[in-house]
Amino acid sequence: MRLGMVIDLKRCVGCQACTVACKAENGTSPGIMYTKVLDQVSGTYPNVRKQFVPVLCNHCRNAPCERVCPTGATHKREDGIVLVDHDKCIGCRACYVACPYNNRIFLKRGKLKEGYYGKKMTPYERAKYPEHQDGIVEKCKFCSHRIDEGLTETSCVQTCPADARIFGNLDDPESKVSRLIRSRGGRQALCEDDTDPSVYYLD
């Protein structure tokens, strides 16, 4: 079992529903985004091409973040999800500079003392912030808590209006993700870094 995501760049319309859904699901503090959609523009008017590139933790099979982590806080589950054990992370940020995808985020000390409206937290923030620790590195968890509850999709996949994100088992050749990767020629980002990501992009 190796959970992975296929991102269909043809489908993505850059609406950022995933970005916000991820925030809502994880209750991340201001400025912290586990996923987001980047614009990529090239050409000169009027011959312009613009593409929307959703980015998130790639949950690499050969994860540099896991390799460089001095504490073992970053670890890989059997289903391929790469997680950070909040209690073990010391905030050295070696993983931050090791991740070619720039998808690790350090929570500054004191970051959790303020919510979106300042020191007075909303009931939602009071409910969600205890799931986090400051002074450590966070990242996308492939919604491991949802997977553990038996759900089949991450929050971003669940909401994606364009169905541009598809989640499934890369080890199962008949899963939708595997079939899409075969039929549409899925590619991994920065494959030259030999990280073997679990996120594939379809052009």
Partner: peptide, 21 residues
Amino acid sequence: SNRGKLCPKGQAGIHRLYDPH
């Protein structure tokens, strides 16, 4: 119609509910 899908504004509805203002 929307089959479980929601746009970013809809996802952000929690903030409308709990807006301290």
